[in-house]
Design a protein around this nucleic acid. Structure first.
Lengths: 133, 133
DNA sequence: CTTTTTGCAAATCTTTTGCACTCTA
DNA sequence: TAGAGTGCAAAAGATTTGCAAAAAG
């Protein structure tokens, strides 16, 4: 296990951070890798994975699994929130749920659990897709 | 694309349905396959995948991705609920969250989404593990 | 007898790992 | 120079697919 604070600011790492900075939404490691190559940064796929994984551990990026089995990443946004994803077109809406946060905290406490985190994603069909479907 | 209604009730399909019936929680295809073999049903892994996939399309089973990248399945349950899992010992508590269900419904509606499903899991440390940790 | 379903193995795809090499501190 | 970080290719794991054999209608 590496100490997070000893990580070196390499060209690759910097490029990945910059790339993440340019996007708000979740993208798969493969997409980020492609994005980097498109910009001319020849970074190995393995490095992208390793760096992204490290960033997750450093709490610099959020991660989730797509319904497709891919792991997706995005830079940590300021506020903690969840997603409402259209299962047809992939359109994603960020939603905040203070109600859910409160509920999660109280339920956890009621069962004696501490240090609780949660994952919550909503999948549905957005208005446009529902109309044409 | 096959017509759902023309699917034949084979021994394998029946065994998988029976196995799903015996469990309430989500299990990976691999676990279900192992479970079947443990009971003496020698069903090919590919068949398990194919059948499970078909059942998802028929809305007979729910599916989600684990943080591990595996796809998990369970029979469509009568009572919808979530899980509070101890990240140390794995102890799992089933929790119902009418508040969350309501919240999810209203948020979805507010954004014009229909046919919305959600996944919600809580991960923390249970009292015993927190005490000794 | 015709068509669907199965099993097996090979193929895919995403992610991880081994290792020699490069670059930073 | 020593050790962290990288690239490449091979390895792992989960899931899918091709195809001939078996089973259902």
């Amino acid at each position: 296990m590496n100490d997070i604070r000893t990580r070196r600011p390499t060209k690759q790492r910097t490029a990945i951070e910059a790339d993440l900075e340019r996007y708000e939404e979740f993208r798969s490691a493969q997409e980020i890798h492609a994005s980097l190559h498109a910009r001319g940064d020849k970074i190995g796929l393995a490095t992208v994975y390793r760096t992204l994984q490290a960033m997750v551990e450093e709490d610099l990026v959020d991660t989730l699994r797509t319904g497709d089995g891919e792991q997706a990443f995005r830079r940590c946004s300021t506020g903690h929130h969840h997603h409402l994803v259209c299962r047809d077109c992939g359109r994603t809406v960020e939603i905040e749920g203070p109600a859910v946060e409160r509920w999660a905290a109280s339920v956890s406490a009621a069962h004696g659990f501490t240090d609780v985190a949660h994952t919550l994603e909503l999948f549905g069909r957005c208005a446009p897709c529902g109309a044409e479907g």
